[in-house]
Design a protein around this nucleic acid. Structure first.
Lengths: 243, 243
DNA sequence: TCTTGACTCTGACGTAGCGTGAGGCTCTTA
DNA sequence: TAAGAGCCTCACGCTACGTCAGAGTCAAGA
């Protein structure tokens, strides 16, 4: 009779749990107060308070309410097993989040070195990034990123301009019907190898990843519109004639 | 007329997005197909496909569908701002997850050195851990954890037994009405200082955290039932008499 | 031509863990 | 006895779909 009982609001204040949460725990039969007043007010006694503290504790380590229920019901519940399960899931989730964060930071960095920050540019950046992730390992991407910083914006833009000019010249020769094994086109091919070399930095694995990408994706996709399949094949034949 | 259009299933297959997702995007007016057949079949044309690809891209960096809509509507949408926002949120979330993971791993470690792995023991472990987190810095906890490993289980249990015996003796003296400033109780006080020293490893900051904890929490809570307030005060007086 | 099977449609519920009202009692105090 | 604080039970909302259910559509084979 004289035992201490608390009303929802009192229990809420004492434990820092919201009234709504206590209502909810009652609703899902996770924690139903042992008593009610005649008017229907919830009355929590000491055993209820202890149970609530247990629930709060288990929530602190990320257990779902369903898991907490099973845990407190002791129904053939392997504590070690579920701890391992949670650890594994959490590690995976952290990895995912870190990957996401890496993407965001890469984008922020890329955008910061751009004049216009349009939505189109953002989407373009994302598409490129996702494609690169498909073919290069994280380490390779890191290497490329670092070299990008070392070279500076100007050099990068210069390289892009070089590529553009080379492709334009190749397209012109192709339109003229010039044999890809002829000297001038072979010179262009040699120049393209130089540019590729400059990009890969001589790293054979990066070169392989690059080749992979250009084999799997259509050239205009892989180069983001810089080169089309026809010119690509024309240059390929010229390069093949170099050996 | 002759333009290429795709039905939901076809678009789904081509892009790897589920049919249900396409229905949903239509429902929330994020991506409504430009055409319908007379029978009501959705027909996606090229512009729809492009829009879908944009949506997929923006999803890849963790944008919500609402954000994607705003982004594609170009409504005074600051790309940099939202990228920063997401980065910040993500970093916080990762930190939280890592904290959770740390807890799980600590628990797993603690439980692995226990004979019985009951639910009660789990909850007890969690409560201790949360309380320790409140008073010790992560670095201090790491230090304590390492020393725990170095010492080994036996030493830890020995220390606990030592404490238990000391407290028992103090309680006996107190019951006998012995003056806390008397020699035998002062000997107990000296012994307690030794044991505290053994726990803190002589680290003054750890000792301060420990004192903080025993000042803020009731002694039986801080010691997990090992010592009660009365004995605690008795020993405190004996220690005060040492100087 | 009819049937079958693959596809499509809309509608509606479920998810996890509450937050946030709405509308109506109950209790205490002035 | 009226007011204010606290309690009650609904019930919707949130995210981004998954998963039926029941019914219509379309192309191909018997």
């Amino acid at each position: 009779m004289g035992a201490i009982t608390l009303k929802v609001g009192e229990l809420a204040k004492q434990t820092g749990v919201s009234v709504r949460t206590l209502h909810y725990y009652d609703e899902i039969n996770l924690l139903s107060p042992s008593h009610r007043t005649e008017a229907g007010y919830r009355l929590y006694d000491e055993s209820d308070i202890i149970r609530l503290q247990q629930i709060v504790s288990l929530r602190q380590i990320g257990f779902s309410l369903e898991e907490i229920r099973e845990c407190l019901e002791q129904r053939s519940f392997s504590v070690e097993h579920i701890i391992q399960l949670h650890s594994t899931r959490l590690r995976e989730q952290i990895q995912l989040s870190q990957k996401l964060l890496y993407r965001l930071e890469t984008i922020a960095q890329t955008m910061s070195s751009m004049e216009t920050v349009s939505v189109e540019a953002l989407i373009e950046t994302i598409e490129v990034m996702i494609m690169l992730e498909k073919y290069y390992t994280p380490e390779q991407l890191e290497t490329l990123k670092q070299r990008q910083e070392v070279l500076g914006e100007e050099q990068i833009q210069q390289a892009q301009a070089d590529w553009q000019m080379l492709i334009e010249q190749a397209r012109t020769e192709m339109a003229k019907g010039t044999d890809p094994t002829s000297a001038p086109v072979k010179a262009l091919a040699r120049r393209s190898l130089e540019l590729i070399q400059a990009f890969t930095g001589g790293d054979p694995e990066i070169e392989q990843s690059l080749n992979q990408m250009y084999q799997q994706e259509p050239p205009d996709v892989a180069s983001r519109g810089a080169i089309d399949a026809a010119v690509m094949e024309y240059l390929d034949r010229a390069r093949a004639a170099l050996e």
